[in-house]
Amino acid sequence: MFKGILKDQSVQTSIGVIFILLIFGSFILPEWMSNNFMYGMSRGLAVLGLMILWRTNLVSFGHALYYGFGAYAVALCQKFFGVTDILLRLLIAVAAAGLLGFALGFILRKYREIFFAMLSLAFSMVLYGLLAKAEFLGSTDGMSISPSTFFGTELGRIALFNFIGLVVILAIIFAQAYLRSSLGHLTTAIQDNEIRVEYLGYSVEKAIHIKYVISACLAGGAGGLMAASLGQVDPDSMVLWSVSGELVFVTIMSGLGNILAPFIGAVIFEFIRTYAFEWAPQAWQMIIGGTLLAIIFFSPGGLWSLFQKLNFLRKKNNE
C-alpha cells in the first residue's frame, strides 16, 4: 500500500511545507502564532477526514461527534486510568472514534446526500446532549486535561507542536496512500456510478463504511490532539453543531484538490478567527461568513484552486 509513497509529489510537498511550519513555529514566530499552527494542524486532521468523505459526495454535518468523542476519550482515560502519555492519548482518541464510526457506519452507509448529512448531525447532537448532562464529565464546563507526557517526561509546548506535526505527516502519507489505491479511487467511482461498482463485484456500502471509519479516526485524532494542546475539553467547543459547521466551512475553504489543503485551510482559519476576534469582537462571525462568501463566489474550488491559479499565472508570466 505504501510502496513508493514518498516519491509522490503531493506527499513530498506536504512534508516540506509541514517542516517549514514546524521550524518557523518552533524557533521564529511568537507563541500565539505557533499556537495557531498547532491548533490548525490538529483540526486539519478532522478536515482531511471530511475531505475524504466529500470526495464521494458525502458531507457530514456532524463530524464534531468524532472530534469530541476523541477529545473526551482522552479526558476519560486521564480521569480513570491516569493516562497522560501523548502516544497513548492519540491512540485512544483514534481508536475510540474509529470504533464509534465503525458502529454508526452500519447505519450511515445506507444514506446519501442530505440524509447522510443530517443523520450525522443528529448523532452529534445526541452526544452533545449526553455530555452536557453528564455531571461526572463536568457537564457544560467540561474537564481539564493535564499536560501530556512522553514515556514519563513532560512534554513542553514546542515538543507537543512538533509531535503534532509528525502525526500530520503520517496522516498525510496514509491518506494519500489510501486515495491513490484502487480502493481509494472507488471514491470517485461511487460518486459517478454506484450500480457499476456493484456489478464489478464490490459492495458500495462497504467501500463507504471503510471510508467513514477512516474519516472518523482522523477526526478523533484531531480531537485528541486538540484536547492535549488546549488542556481542556468541553461540549460547546468540541461537540456542538457549530464545531461541525466550522469543519465543513474549512473543508469548503480549503478545497478538495490536494491532501495538504485541509491543513493549510485549517491554519488560515485559525488566523482569520484570531484577527477577526481582535478587530471585531462583536462581529467576528460576520467576517468569517464574509470570507466563506468570498471563497464561494471567487474561488469555488477553495483556496487550493486559488493557489493553483496563482501558480499558473506566474508560470505564464515567466514564459
Binding site: M1, K3, G4, R180, S181, S182, L183, G184, H185, V197, L200, G201, Y202
Partner: peptide, 13 residues
C-alpha cells in the same frame, strides 16, 4: 476489483 484477492485493491491504481 476483479483481482481483489491479491490485495490489488490497496495497491496504487
Amino acid at each position: 476489483l476483479s483481482k481483489k484477492k491479491g490485495g490489488q485493491l490497496l495497491l496504487p491504481l
